[in-house]
Simulated assay, not measured.
Amino acid sequence: MSNGSRLLNIEIDGQIQRDIIDASFGSIAIVQELCKTFVEISGVSETQDSPLVLANPDYLKAAIEQKVSDYQARHLRALEAIAGGLVTKRPKEGKFPLILPYYTVRVIIESSLQDLLNGIGRLDLHDRIRRIHHRPPAEVRTGDITNLLNTFAYLQKERRIAPPLFDYDQGARSLKVIDSTLYFYLANVDKESLIEEIPNPLDTWEHDEGAGNNPSPFNLPLQTARRTVSQIVVKQRVEIVLENQWLDKLFTNIK
């Protein structure tokens, strides 16, 4: 920071410097990008004639928001790819596949920053997936989670995520984030909105025979049920509008 500040004849406030370092999770690249964006938003694009102190925290907030937006496309694509898994299996005998990669991505997004920094333990991941899974807890077995984690590197490779975002430490039995820009992204993004952006594989599959085009929302996971209800309501409204238009034409002809 000091070299760049000296060349531009500026001084970045000490608290702003500490906040930039804290927000960067040890990544020199993020520090440099945040500094550059902060200086630009502060209105500095060339060497100043007289010394200038930059100390507006709102400009740093705007710089962080800008960098989150810059990382959005890459990380959203990667998380979507991982959530989609390797093979799309159709429901068998009324049961949907486990789709563990999708639930793993959800757990990662919902995790606290400290959990991500420490790594998510296998047992913790198993427990948290069971809580939100569409199948009964007993059907999400320990072996399923172990197999998922042992093939996580392969999954990322096959989905062309390079460099990879995650690594499973078999010794510590924990899933760790290994891309500092993902720490930064998840620490500052709206997590609820991000989860909504990740397609749920359940939404793409048809339901039990006899359920028709409008399956009962009561048999679906909450996120899927909300979308199903919305689709039904919109369809019914369209049908009512079309019926009213037809009646208007009918009575006009009679007159």
Rank of each mutant, 00 (worst) to 15 (best):
S2K: 11
E11L: 12
I12D: 03
I12M: 04
D22G: 06
F25P: 07
F25I: 10
V31I: 15
E33R: 15
K36V: 12
F38L: 15
V39W: 09
G43F: 09
V44M: 04
L52W: 01
V53K: 09
L54I: 11
I64S: 04
I64R: 05
Q72S: 14
Q72R: 13
L76H: 04
L76T: 11
L76S: 09
A81D: 12
G84W: 08
G85Q: 08
L86N: 12
R90G: 04
K92P: 00
G94Q: 00
F96R: 01
P97C: 03
I108R: 05
I109G: 04
S112R: 13
N118H: 10
L125C: 14
L125H: 08
H126R: 05
R130L: 03
P137R: 11
D144S: 14
F152W: 11
F152C: 08
Y154C: 00
Y154W: 10
L155E: 08
R160Y: 13
G171F: 10
S174M: 07
T181Q: 13
V189F: 08
L194R: 06
E197A: 13
N200L: 10
N200P: 01
N200C: 12
E209P: 01
E209S: 10
N213D: 11
N214T: 06
P215S: 04
F218C: 04
L220Q: 01
V229M: 06
K235N: 06
F251G: 00
N253M: 14
